[in-house]
Design a protein around this nucleic acid. Structure first.
Lengths: 206, 206
DNA sequence: TAGATTGTTAATCGATTAACAATC
DNA sequence: TAGATTGTTAATCGATTAACAATC
């Protein structure tokens, strides 16, 4: 199956398809063509067909794609067909925002533990989770079988949090701190940094 | 000068260079080669040289780049050499996080106004800014000469906030809501959506 | 001078788009 | 059947990387 390497660009588009398909499903729209999708998502229809075709034949010639079936398939591809336990370190505003966000999503991404180094934060309740101290991180992550770690601490602390995540055995990290973190090659890291996002936006001002 | 179209990929790397150069400057490191940069940022040195060469000859053959000079130049390219007034709509946790973030950055990106539709939020103080009601948005944006708008409201409200931003005359929008917003072609929109970020990360789990 | 490193051209690599036979 | 739309191959486009003359 996964003999051909799927490019990161393709993988990044899948959640966008998924989100829009979910909207269609909610509106009881049962079928969609690559053309419809392309129009709504500002993408080339051929690209959408090609993206999906990497993973299987999900459409019907002359008809298009069955919305609910495609949702199911994309969820499978993204491994969102079962709950993925997530841990978060950094119970500041951003961490809190992510935890709450989490609540109203049918994502199967579930934040199951929140940690902070600051004593004043320990024990605080965020979205039904009590903030835990850092020295409980490794054990909690192991017992809860956390697979993804989210870092929302200041830049100077990000690397050591990453190290602890790796030590505890997470498979992937989403880093919001404005710094590049180093991890072993088998751990996937995505950087979500709005500073750089905002700065690159400035370039396009007249 | 800007006869050649600079690709988005290049523009997105500039803030990353800038951030690292700022770190070097803080450590009183005065010169850096494309090789050094490439190593630290996980990028090909040739790519870094090429990126920079789009905008001018900033380096010295045999020596490398003067850190402070390059910082100055990249800031100019990104238009960060003068303050850019920014407005934010949505005074939730995420909005608050961005405002505070803002505070400890030497960015020249300055959030100068915060708005929210909820009456309970109006008048709240966030990082020395009072949250204003939506009906003051257009006037405030005009009088403060806001150039970039940030959207941190729920998905269903994002489009109408975008419309108001456009009406008020912002030149670019950074949208954190998990929905694609439509704006006239001369307005630049960047989407910063951690849902899709997190979901694409799941793909790489074993 | 010798060694290092840039700026830039040419080569490679990969991603996007067009086109169309297959077929619902 | 006729019209529509997929899956896929081929063509195009663009971005990355290698290589090297210029030169500090």
């Amino acid at each position: 199956m996964k003999t051909i390497k799927i490019s990161e660009a393709v993988v990044r588009r899948l959640p966008i398809y998924l989100r829009f398909l979910n909207e269609l499903s909610k509106k009881n729209i049962s079928t969609v063509s690559s053309q419809d999708l392309g129009q709504k998502l500002d993408l080339n229809p051929a690209q959408i067909r090609k993206d999906l075709a990497y993973f299987g034949e999900f459409g019907k010639k002359g008809i298009g794609y069955d919305v609910d079936y495609l949702i199911e398939k994309i969820r499978q591809i993204l491994k969102l067909d079962k709950v993925i336990p997530v841990a978060l370190v950094g119970a500041g505003n951003l961490g809190r925002a992510l935890c709450n966000y989490n609540a109203y999503l049918r994502d199967n991404m579930k934040i199951v533990a929140v940690f902070d180094a600051q004593p004043s934060k320990i024990g605080e309740s965020i979205n039904n989770l009590k903030v835990k101290p850092m020295d409980e991180l490794v054990e909690a992550i192991r017992s809860l079988q956390v697979r993804i770690g989210i870092i929302t601490v200041p830049a100077v602390e990000a690397q050591q949090v990453a190290d602890q995540f790796v030590h505890a055995g997470v498979e992937a990290i989403l880093n919001f701190a404005p710094v590049i973190i180093r991890v072993p090659g088998d751990i996937r890291v995505h950087h979500a940094d709005f500073t750089t996002e905002l700065q690159s936006l400035a370039y396009y001002l007249d």
